[in-house]
Design a protein around this nucleic acid. Sequence first.
DNA 1: CCGATACGCAACGGGACCGTTTCATAATCC
DNA 2: GGATTATGAAACGGTCCCGTTGCGTATCGG
Lengths: 207, 207
Amino acid sequence: MKTQQTAEGVARPAGRPRSEKAERSIIEATLELLGEGIGVSELSIESIAGRAGVGKTTIYRRWSNKEDLVVDALATLKPPIPLPQGGTVRDDLVTYLRVIQEETRHHRTRCIMNIAMSDSERHPRLAERFRELAVEPRRAVVAAVLRRGMETGELRADLDIDMALALLSGAMIWSTKWSHSGESDAGLPERIVDEALKGFRPRNSEQ
Amino acid sequence: MKTQQTAEGVARPAGRPRSEKAERSIIEATLELLGEGIGVSELSIESIAGRAGVGKTTIYRRWSNKEDLVVDALATLKPPIPLPQGGTVRDDLVTYLRVIQEETRHHRTRCIMNIAMSDSERHPRLAERFRELAVEPRRAVVAAVLRRGMETGELRADLDIDMALALLSGAMIWSTKWSHSGESDAGLPERIVDEALKGFRPRNSEQ
DNA sequence: CCGATACGCAACGGGACCGTTTCATAATCC
DNA sequence: GGATTATGAAACGGTCCCGTTGCGTATCGG
């Protein structure tokens, strides 16, 4: 194993270098298949190789098992849409839920979410990726919005931020999944936010 | 195909009757495997037959495909725990969420829920079963609790029941799935319910 | 006992993938 | 050119499962 020094001083093995194009198309093929509804357990290396136009060897040389590949593939998904914040707290929250709602319309996103919900049970490292990739960044952004509202007095000063986030996100997911068939989804984000802001109690009740 | 008349007047085919015991153990084996984390797509007839101590023939004779079998198997799951209602609305809601929380502790229930969330995408009839089996009955019970609260004045008269239900159930699911690792789940139901009842706004804010 | 049907079991041919190996070819450095 | 490593293609033996068939046995009605 001879190595050379590049101009940048990075050690480099002798021989033909690995093709970055192949690597990209492998990951792209993986995401495509997952996005078509193929679960992690049904995902086969052969199908990925076929889709990517690549020999199985090339895949096995880089990833020793399927989970590693999927983890790396998911890491390339960029957190979509930085939430535009700046309006009312209510408006920002509505925008946030609209983003979620829009995503659930795309088949690809739904499939990825399904993997996050289910396959992560058997693949803890997948769950980890999802958390740091999709859950945590959004949590941070919305948490900032909520904190702002608590400072301006638009929200209760003792609001439990994580709980508020769970109520909003959870309600959105739950509604799109189990809403009555005929029920319209128009204005759903607004209705969720307003209901959450108001609370269930009458405005002038004691306690 | 000769048939005879039984005492009850029910037509009955000639020959040895099908074994109800076999049928039960097939369904039981199916539920066991699903409860161990086997997804619908990975579930194989051979594994079911093996687990049930039954020939594959016996399964194929009764169900023409896997989805039919799973649908029938799920139908035998009884909606667990009729929600004890009678206390405060708040108490009843807390009880409801505690039931959900307790279920998510059981691996079997978690697996079934995962199937409901993910596999139902590719198997509409499964989604149907889940709705009428697990979602709808609970919705009805909790809706009754909420309606009672609206009548007694404990809750806002114009509360959107379906929305309230989505907030509560969604928050519970979301929290148990994506809560911070170290975070304790103790008192989670109470905290969700209280946060939902109070709403996010300060008690004496205008609008 | 007889005809009919169901049972569990074993075996079938066929398909999809597994993870590995071999091979001719391509890319890189010296 | 020579050494070295990567690439895509093909083939390997092996496993799992498919859905079907045949077999000997068990259980029903008549």
